[in-house]
Every structure is written in C-alpha cells, then in structure tokens.
Amino acid sequence: MFKRLMMVALLVIAPLSAATAADQTNPYKLMDEAAQKTFDRLKNEQPQIRANPDYLRTIVDQELLPYVQVKYAGALVLGQYYKSATPAQREAYFAAFREYLKQAYGQALAMYHGQTYQIAPEQPLGDKTIVPIRVTIIDPNGRPPVRLDFQWRKNSQTGNWQAYDMIAEGVSMITTKQNEWGTLLRTKGIDGLTAQLKSISQQKITLEEKK
C-alpha cells in the first residue's frame, strides 16, 4: 500500500525546468507551479508516452532531478554507511541512485490517469530550513484521497528550496528505503546496493492501464 502511495505522490513532485522555475526561495510556489507544469506535460505528451513509456525517463531527467536534492536524499538512505564509504564508492552510488530515480519516478508518472491535487495554504517560513507541505491527491475514479507531506529543505548556501522526502501515513519514503535496503547494505555494503540500483534502473517502464 505504501509503495502505491509513494508512486501516486511522485506525480506531483516533478519540479519546473530552470527556464520557467518559480521563486526558488518559496517552496509553496515551487510546489504549486511544479504540480501544474507536471500535470500539463503528462496530459499533453501522452502520444509520446504511450508510444514509448521510457520517454518518461527524459521527462524526469529534464523536469524533476535538477530540483530534487538527489545527493542529500541518497546520503540519508545510506545512513551510517555513508561515512564509511570511499569517495569513489559515493560517486558510483550517487550515479546509480540518480539512474534509479529516473526509472522509479518514471514508473510513478506512468500512473497518471487524470488525477488532480490540492496544496495546503502557504504558511510563514520564518527562519525554518525544513518545511512540510501537505498535498491532497484526488483520484477521478473514486479512490479515497491521498494526503501527503512533502519535505522541502532550504539550501544554506543559495537560499533555494528543494524537495527531498515524502511522508505518507506517518511513514517517510527515506525511512522506507532504509528499511528495504538495510539488509543488503549490511551483507554486501554500498557496492552491493550500487549494483542492485544499476540493475533496477535497467527495467523498462510500463504503463498502468486505467481501472
């Protein structure tokens, strides 16, 4: 169930391209415009997507990853294993993690069937560096609404905000991946996880038929 919630949630996290980005210092504006741009692209490019579902990787690479804190999220997933990894191991892992996100997020976007969304009203940021933004996803086919909290983090150097995690039903996506990959990290280390991520990233994206 959580895996499905995570995939549905990713439908609204794909941010804007650099040329049309919203105010990078306001995570609420980023979330709002990102959702609108993403849904528009999914709707307008269905012919290309249906002809070649792996085209979704391109959308992810162009529109999402430049505005997601990939390395920060990847380091959180590694936890204690990050500090013990060599620079070469980290570089290989982050490259594999990025390719994994292209496949995983692309597969999530393949679930698009006309969903709509509501974003919580903007709250004062103050001096906060981590801000959760509640998004409610509404399914046109009558499924119950899904309420999610996207975690946005302020870059201490640039002042810009980027998304790095999502919490559904009190469970963090980062925590879920830590639990899912924990045994592999304990037995085969970061190299074993890197190899698995490379394998997963090679899987073809498949479209979910409308139910």
Rank of each mutant, 00 (worst) to 15 (best):
V68A: 04
G74F: 11
A110W: 14
F39G: 04
Y28Q: 10
K37N: 09
K37A: 06
T129A: 04
Y93E: 06
A88G: 05
G170R: 05
E33D: 04
D165I: 03
K128G: 07
L78H: 00
G79R: 11
S199K: 04
K83V: 01
P132W: 03
E33C: 00
L64C: 03
I190D: 02
P140R: 11
A14V: 12
T25M: 02
L109S: 02
A51H: 07
I200H: 14
A110Q: 00
A19T: 03
I174W: 12
L184F: 08
E33G: 10
I59Q: 15
G192M: 15
L125E: 08
K128M: 15
Q36H: 04
E33M: 00
L56W: 00
I133L: 02
N26G: 04
A120K: 12
L184R: 10
I174V: 01
I49E: 02
R4L: 02
P124R: 09
R4Q: 00
Y105P: 00
A21P: 13
D54A: 00
N179R: 11
G182D: 05
R57T: 11
M31N: 07
F2R: 09
T86A: 04
V171M: 13
Q48F: 02
T206H: 11
L5H: 06
A96T: 09
A95K: 13
A19P: 13
N141Q: 04
P53C: 01
F94L: 07
F150T: 09
S156L: 13
I137Y: 00
N44L: 02
P140E: 07
V77W: 07
I137Q: 00
R98T: 01
N155L: 03
L109N: 09
P15T: 13
P132V: 12
A108Q: 15
G106F: 05
Y28T: 10
V8S: 03
L125S: 05
P66Y: 02
Q203L: 04
R147E: 06
A92E: 01
R153T: 15
L184N: 06
Q151W: 11
A19K: 09
T136C: 11
A18S: 02
M7S: 01
D139Y: 05
A85R: 01
Y100E: 04
P121S: 14
N155A: 01
P145A: 03
Y117N: 10
A96M: 01
T20D: 14
T175E: 14
L197I: 12
E208F: 14
E209Q: 13
A21S: 06
A9V: 12
D61N: 12
Y28C: 09
Q157N: 09
K188W: 10
E91P: 05
N44M: 06
R50Y: 14
D191W: 05
L30F: 05
E99V: 09
L56T: 03
T20I: 10
G182E: 06
R98D: 14
T176L: 12
L16W: 03
I200F: 08
R90M: 15
D32I: 02
Q103K: 13
Q178P: 03
A108W: 10
Q115N: 01
N141K: 03
D149Q: 09
F97Y: 01
R98V: 09
A104Q: 00
K128C: 07
S199G: 05
M1V: 02
K128S: 04
A96W: 01
K198C: 12
E208Q: 13
A22S: 04
P27I: 00
K154A: 14
S17V: 08
S84H: 08
Q151Y: 05
I119S: 05
K210C: 01
R143K: 11
K177N: 05
K3D: 03
P145H: 14
P66M: 13
P124C: 10
G114F: 15
F39H: 04
M111P: 04
M6V: 10
S199A: 09
E33N: 14
N52P: 08
A21H: 03
A88E: 04
D23K: 03
L125T: 07
L78W: 07
H113Q: 06
P66F: 01
D40L: 10
I174L: 15
I13K: 07
Y28R: 06
K71D: 14
T176K: 07
Q157K: 06
Q89I: 07
A85W: 06
Q118D: 00
Y164G: 13
T187K: 14
L101C: 01
S84C: 01
T38G: 08
T206S: 07
Y100H: 08
L64H: 03
N160L: 09
N179Y: 14
I13N: 15
D32T: 13
G142S: 12
G182Q: 10
D139K: 05
Y105C: 15
